[in-house]
Design a protein around this nucleic acid. Structure first.
Lengths: 351, 351
DNA sequence: CAAGTTTAGACAAACGTTTGTCTTTTGTCC
DNA sequence: GGACAAAAGACAAACGTTTGTCTAAACTTG
């Protein structure tokens, strides 16, 4: 049976400047001067010591809340992302969080599931809670933000906003060149969900790279992701259908590692071997990529770095330092077990 | 070259009660009464309409900050967890976040990497930022919190705190019984990191269950996790060493799915087949568990549910409703591909 | 029509800070 | 010992709300 919560021990109010003032026989302002080391105020060392001792004794912590009311910064950031989950967002967020905490900043996490209305509303609600700036991950913005902002994988051009993005042209080239030089020609593609902000840019870059290398992209061999999730289920049905269609392909170039995992699973169930029958190339290099069976070959994005860079830029903006409009980071090809030369390339050719 | 950020468009100050008051020729208090529908104040419909129109026109949003200064709630929670990452924490957090956002609450995420000092300090820092309550996940608390609190997988007994925990006895029994009835007798165990708050409880429960079933737990077959990470790397070296030791075992009962993935990887590299040579039983049932090759048999914790339940309890506390000291949730055995009868059980016995 | 009541709203204090100005005390210098 | 400066700190306003009290006008009622 639920027991009533006992009268909380939180009733003993917390130390305020006023209480300290009363205790010390000083005015609140004097205490504020000492604790903030406000320059230009003459206060003798003896008094300073008394004040500091009392502050320590009562574990005084100035209210950030009251402080912001004075136009000060709250040292708080709002982070906007589509969804909490494994993989991409989680890793970027981790980079953001690490840097912010290290710098003494706190942050709100807000997920919007790509709902336009929420994306518009949240920044304002965050503002009323005192955030100093906004960091948006994989989010398509519709209107200028009411606060300084930095975007990760945002492809929105808005004045005063800094974008941290991957060099998708290079990424696409790395991916296709890798498969090409292994000998793959019939390559299937997994295209990102329309609401994922990298999808368009990457698809364009992929088509360009394919053209350069003389690789054909067949609509018949293209799987379009649509499920809004961060689980491998996103690609599983698409790849199953592709297998059932019996169109030949020797490799799948995936939108991300999670969809690569779903693909491998689907191929496995169909009795196809990776990389023996089909090579799988992932994208992102999430934590578990190296530990899959087979381990994933993938295009690594420096996800944590992207997060921390974005956070760094935002803090710079808050310090009124200049920041570039765009920071491009470099992808990297990581070759593991899931890609290999297609069957027949090494032995006698089949036909 | 970095371009200077242009004078931000954030300079146009935001609507305050005072500005609205001036615009309407009313006093701030009157506007507050209308917007909050404060009972017991007589204000004619005509004025109300004027006020509401003006508020909409200027997109007025009351400052939560100023409001809390009046002793109101900020509708904000602080979430304490060891680390941002894949798996357990991510899923619980997702449940927490979903419920909180749905209820119009915002939350800070704070990771402490099990550092005692941070665990003690953060709650206070959160308080200065106006949070109404604290939700701690997988965190060992050392002192009473300055705010109402709910713990997930916290095994700290503190007055006024609600704990949301798994029924570990049942979980251990489900796990061992499953392996036992498949025919496993030589079972290796992966024990959680000492700083992980479920480790002790689960280990105790595991030993009890083993005794009941007559299963022996050999120290030689026990891997002790120690790496502070959420990647499969945590179990990989331990399992490698176990394999090299050449002590026979037919199954591994893992601390979590992530360590199960690392185990499978290590076995795979040693040329051992799962479940043919060794069965692997995970714990948690994280998103990707079903999509591994082989897919993971595991003990499911309702992680998202645990998160949302905890959040719900915290909001209840804030509403001064009574809450139980403990809520136990039920584990569930999920049988997939990674467990099977040990070799020799079905065919002629080996020896 | 005077007295009382309701209506519509203003006014002021408070929350916990910061910061500009003012006052009192002490010390220095000639 | 008087003039002045410096030192030490008090005082008050402000930030944007909420809320308790007060007032003025407009109604009611006998």
């Amino acid at each position: 049976m639920p027991k009533a919560t006992p009268p909380s021990p939180h009733s003993g109010r917390h130390a305020s400047l006023k209480m300290l003032a009363e205790y010390l026989g000083l005015s609140p302002s004097t205490i504020s001067f000492v604790l903030n080391e406000t320059p230009g105020r003459s206060i003798p060392e003896s008094t300073r010591a008394r004040v500091k001792a009392a502050a320590a004794k009562f574990n005084y912590q100035p209210s950030m809340i009251a402080r912001t009311l004075q136009g000060k910064r709250m040292r708080t950031i709002g982070v906007l992302l589509p969804v909490l989950g494994e993989g991409y967002h989680s890793q970027v967020l981790s980079g953001v969080g690490d840097l912010l905490m290290r710098e003494g900043y706190f942050y709100f996490t807000v997920h919007h599931r790509h709902k336009k209305e929420l994306i518009s509303d949240y920044p304002n609600l965050l503002r009323t809670r005192g955030v100093d700036g906004i960091l948006a991950i994989d989010t398509h913005l519709y209107a200028p933000l009411p606060l300084p902002a930095v975007l990760v994988a945002g492809h929105t051009e808005l004045p005063g906003i800094t974008n941290v993005v991957l060099d998708h042209r290079k990424a696409a080239h790395l991916a296709l060149h890798h498969l090409y030089q292994l000998g793959h020609r019939k390559i299937a593609f997994i295209q990102g969900q329309p609401f994922s902000s990298d999808s368009d840019v990457r698809w364009t870059a992929t088509r360009e790279a394919a053209q350069e290398l003389g690789i054909e992209i067949h609509e018949d061999l293209t799987v379009h992701l649509s499920i809004d999730s961060t689980s491998p289920e996103i690609s599983y049905p698409g790849i199953r259908k592709l297998i059932q269609s019996r169109r030949p392909f020797t490799a799948v170039c995936c939108f991300n590692d999670v969809s690569a995992m779903g693909s491998i699973r689907a191929l496995h169930e169909a009795g196809l071997h990776v990389p023996g029958d089909v090579s799988i190339l992932g994208f992102d290099d999430i934590q578990s990529a190296a530990y899959q069976v087979p381990s994933l070959s993938t295009i690594r994005q420096p996800l944590r770095k992207m997060g921390s860079t974005a956070a760094e830029m935002l803090l710079k903006k808050l310090a009124d330092e200049s920041t570039p409009d765009m920071i491009q980071v470099e992808p990297e090809l990581v070759v593991r077990e899931s890609t290999a030369a297609p069957r027949g390339t090494r032995k006698a050719t089949k036909k």
